[in-house]
Structure formats: structure tokens, C-alpha cells
Lab assay of single mutants.
Amino acid sequence: GEEMDTAEIARQVKEQLIKHNIGQRIFGHYVLGLSQGSVSEILARPKPWNKLTVRGKEPFHKMKQFLSDEQNILALRSIQGR
């Protein structure tokens, strides 16, 4: 696969979550399948791509996919709003 700019992906995700008022817990649960603790760690201190294991890269693939389609963001927003 291609190398990803993990810091940039994390920054964009944080931006979207704040902009749409989506909590990290909801994002972690529905998008990444991770706990809030793992999510906040990944978003606060993303490791460089070449330092990640295959498993460590997974959340970034999912985040990139999440960012690529605004429908994903809107869907999360409606879950959050319940």
C-alpha cells in the first residue's frame, strides 16, 4: 500500500470531529472499533507510517476512508445526536 501521512490524517479527523461535534468515543466505536483511550492516543500522537505494524496501520486506513466520504461524517453526526 501507499505510505500515509498519519499526522495529517489525524489532524483532519480531529478537525471533522470538532466541526461536527462528534465525540471520540462514538468515532472510535463506529469507525475504528477501538476504545476512546486508543482513539485519543492515535489522534494525539500518531506514529509515523513506517513505524506502524500492519495492525497499527488499520485505523489510518479506516480514518482515510471515513474522510473520503462526507456521508460517513453525516451518519456519525446523526448517531451522536440521538
Rank of each mutant, 00 (worst) to 15 (best):
G1M: 14
I42A: 05
I79S: 07
L32Q: 01
I26H: 11
K47P: 11
E8H: 08
L52T: 00
Q80K: 09
Q71N: 10
I22Q: 01
T53P: 06
S78P: 05
S68I: 07
L43V: 02
R11P: 02
L34Y: 06
Q24T: 11
E8Y: 05
E3M: 09
N21C: 07
S35R: 07
A7T: 11
L74T: 10
S40I: 09
P46H: 02
D5M: 03
A44K: 10
K57M: 08
E8F: 07
K57Y: 03
L76Q: 03
N21F: 03
K19C: 05
V31R: 00
E3S: 09
R11I: 04
P59C: 15
Q71S: 14
E58A: 08
K14T: 04
P48R: 04
K62G: 02
V13Y: 01
P46F: 02
H61C: 08
F60I: 05
L43G: 00
Q36M: 09
K51P: 00
G37S: 14
S68D: 12
E15R: 07
V39Q: 02
I26F: 10
N21E: 11
R45I: 05
E8C: 07
L74Q: 13
R82G: 15
F27A: 00
G23T: 12
I26G: 03
P48K: 04
A10K: 02
S40H: 15
P46C: 04
G33C: 04
A7I: 08
I26W: 10
G81C: 14
L34M: 15
K47S: 09
H20V: 03
L67E: 00
I9D: 04
F60V: 00
V13L: 04
D69R: 07
F60T: 01
G28Y: 05
S40E: 15
H29E: 14
Q36Y: 11
Q24G: 04
G1W: 08
E3A: 11
I22K: 00
F27G: 01
E8S: 09
L76E: 02
L34W: 06
K51T: 13
L43A: 02
L32G: 01
G28M: 06
K64P: 00
V54W: 08
Y30D: 05
G1P: 11
L67I: 05
L17W: 01
R55M: 12
H29A: 11
G56S: 06
G81T: 14
G23P: 15
A44R: 09
K51H: 10
S78K: 14
H29F: 08
N72L: 06
R25D: 15
Q36D: 14
H29G: 05
I22L: 06
I18S: 13
G37W: 11
S38H: 12
L74I: 14
I42Y: 05
M4L: 13
G33Y: 00
F27I: 01
R25K: 13
Y30W: 07
L67D: 01
K51M: 12
R45K: 13
E41T: 06
I26A: 11
L34S: 05
L67W: 01
H20L: 05
L32I: 03
I26M: 10
I18P: 02
Q36K: 14
I18F: 15
G1H: 06
L34C: 11
Q71D: 12
E8L: 10
K47I: 10
L17A: 02
M4A: 04
F60P: 01
G28N: 06
S35V: 06
E8K: 09
P59N: 15
Q65S: 11
L43K: 00
T6R: 01
K14G: 06
A7N: 09
N21D: 12
G56D: 14
R77V: 12
A10V: 14
R82I: 10
A7P: 03
L34F: 08
F66N: 01
K64W: 06
Q36T: 12
S38T: 13
A44V: 08
Q65W: 07
D69E: 08
E58I: 06
A7Q: 12
F60S: 01
V31E: 02
G1I: 14
N72C: 10
K51W: 05
I9H: 03
I18V: 13
G23N: 15
K57T: 04
D5N: 10
I42R: 00
L74A: 12
M63V: 01
R82N: 15
R25V: 10
A44N: 15
F66M: 02
I79L: 14
K14E: 06
V31F: 06
L67P: 01
G56E: 15
T53G: 12
R25W: 10
Q71A: 13
L17Y: 01
P59G: 12
V54K: 14
G81M: 15
R77H: 10
R11M: 09
H61T: 11
Q36C: 08
A10T: 10
E8P: 00
L52M: 05
W49N: 01
F27N: 01
G37R: 14
I26Y: 09
F66A: 02
Q80F: 06
V39K: 01
A7G: 08
H61F: 15
Q71W: 06
R77S: 14
V39R: 00
M4D: 05
H61D: 07
D5C: 07
Q71F: 07
S35A: 09
A44G: 12
R45S: 14
R82H: 15
R77P: 04
E41Q: 07
I9T: 06
A75S: 14
I22W: 03
T6F: 01
E8N: 07
K62L: 09
L32M: 05
G37F: 10
R25I: 09
K51Q: 15
I73P: 05
S68R: 08
S68Y: 05
N72Y: 10
P48W: 05
I79N: 09
M63K: 00
L32P: 01
A7R: 10
A10F: 00
E58S: 06
D5H: 05
